[in-house]
Amino acid sequence: MPALKVDGLAKTFPLKKPLFGPARPGVRAVRPVSFQVETGETLGVVGESGCGKSTLARMLVGLLEPSEGTIEIAGKAQDTADPAAFGKLIQYVFQDPNSSLNPRKTIRQVMEAPLKRLHAMSGPDRDRRISEIFASVNLRDEFLGRYPHEFSGGQAQRIGIARALAADPRIIVLDEPVSALDVSVQAQVLNLLADLKSRFGLTYLFITHDLAVVEAVSDRIVVLYFGAVVEIGKAESIFANPRHPYTKLLADSAPVVGRPLTAPEQKGTELPDPLNPPPGCAFAGRCPRATDLCRVQDPDLKPMGEDQLAACHHPLEG
């Protein structure tokens, strides 16, 4: 049974109805996407800004209502009616560690909230549990009396991870957890996440825009473009052997030591207008392989080779 199963999940943000004329169709931030995350797996979700990755994450943790589709967590449909029960299944680690901590609460108050609300623990139990969690994320107990502004980005992000762990969830959605951190601290946090995962048997959904990071931490990777999944594949092979031209563009654009500077794309560099999406494949305007078929018909996600799926009418050779 997969830990998390998403079927046809979509989100459309409605636009204000104009004073005159008919209502406009709304912005489709996430177009129907389907994938599943196996228990104990790290699924990487990669895409550029505006591709809908944060919207997707917020739907998974119940902060946004999906417009269409279903989310199944551990075989049961997502049910946010009881926040106490839901919070124990899935938790979220935010991108900006400082803005996700209330500036006027001590770290102890931040840590106690999930233990009190989700697990109804008594005072001494909470203290013991907080010590345990803090030890596992390499934070000292004396930090508990301090306020968030006293911490560096890396420490604050570890507090954010500790808070997610306090809920004792099965799945953690990590939304760009290291992109606000310096590289030397980024490595500390990535290693900590890997360590926690094997220790507590967690399942991760790891969202980022950094290809090298997602490749280093994931088992499988989902590539999003313009709110839709364009390719899913194994982390070790998807960038080396992309089937979708967009995945190839991403892999070619990432700066790599020892590779000469090339601009892999010179024409049509703009993303499509989300208010007025083109018919057919959203990438067709930027794609060197696009044909008339691409501009009319939206390609479905099809299996290509083993363990790889791509949504392309003219996929690259494997």
Partner: peptide, 24 residues
């Protein structure tokens, strides 16, 4: 040397990163 080592690089595969302990 250690800063270069702790930056993941595309094509390096899944791995433990050599983090630098502590803070500047």
């Amino acid at each position: 040397r250690r800063l270069i080592a702790c930056v993941p690089e595309l094509g390096g595969g899944r791995r433990e990163l050599a983090a630098i302990p502590g803070l500047p």
